[in-house]
Design a protein around this nucleic acid. Structure first.
Lengths: 152, 152
DNA sequence: TCTATATAGATGCAATTGCATTTATTGTCA
DNA sequence: TGACAATAAATGCAATTGCATCTATATAGA
């Protein structure tokens, strides 16, 4: 057996840092959005995926794959986005169970305004604290912690 | 001005990785605890701090500083822990507003059983994927993203 | 074709979180 | 001292999350 039941001190420290820092960063970014009267990060994640998907839109289950949100979570998040007019739900021709979600013009505009704030947070919290080389090192190390591990 | 409104591609990628990986890891660890019929990570965080604090215990506001939980969150979490007999609340001699939280024997035992599962998750998810040197590099880079930045 | 199984998505209900406010006590200073 | 600001912790209420289940449609196999 190659598994270890007890983690090394190095692993514990890296884990602890990862937990703490990620929570801090999320909180900072959320605070910045809130302070600007904008929706929470979760909305950005979905709007971002939909904006990248273009006119074809995405099925809810595709959003689940891309964002890691739970199924019920996406279902309700999309309901809120639709209620706000940021996305629209279209029937799918060849699958009566499903629907296609497409971002609206208002949704694109909201995403743009969110990015103005969110992007600034990223620049300040991460971009300003590590050099490009260090950022690449960090990305590579984090990539190896993914499931499945990232190639680049 | 030295601030940048738009983050570099390297910063965006590192941020995205950090967000995604930390969510995945938390989810994996939570799932493992759940599968063993154990309480969620938040409980571990508090029990851990209280166990380290020893017999003297900690004031709720100290737990807030150490764990990043919101005040109302700690207040209710402690109520649940107390209801489960994992901590006890003691009056403070020189401050009638406050209380001291102390971990109980049952609390220590629960923490021990949680660590058996949580520690294994850390070992598998992080310890087994990066070398000790790489883990140190990761810790150092993450430390620079903290507020305030870590010295070590 | 008919039935069983799998997939897509929604939803009822309980638990938790977030926000704002409240209660109680302590500290400050005119 | 007495009024006022600050701190510690709890809580009412709305929003969100988690869990389990449900509905509807699609697919596979006898």
């Amino acid at each position: 057996m190659t598994e270890k039941a007890t983690p090394s001190p190095e692993a514990i420290k890296a884990w602890a840092r990862l937990m703490r820092v990620s929570r801090q960063l999320v909180e900072s970014a959320e605070d910045a959005l809130k302070a600007s009267g904008l929706p929470p990060l979760a909305w950005y994640d979905v709007l971002h995926e939909l904006a990248e998907a273009g006119e074809g839109g995405l099925r809810p289950f595709q959003l689940i794959e891309r964002t890691l949100f739970a199924q019920y979570n996406i279902s309700r998040l999309l309901a809120r986005l639709e209620a706000d007019g940021l996305v629209e739900k279209l029937p799918v021709a060849d699958d009566g169970r499903g629907q296609t979600i497409r971002i609206t013009a208002k949704g694109r505009e909201t995403r743009r305004r969110m990015w103005a704030v969110y992007g600034r947070s990223i620049a300040e919290l991460v971009g300003a604290r590590l050099s490009p080389e260090e950022l690449n090192t960090l990305s590579a190390l984090l990539g190896r912690l993914r499931h499945p591990p990232a190639g680049d």
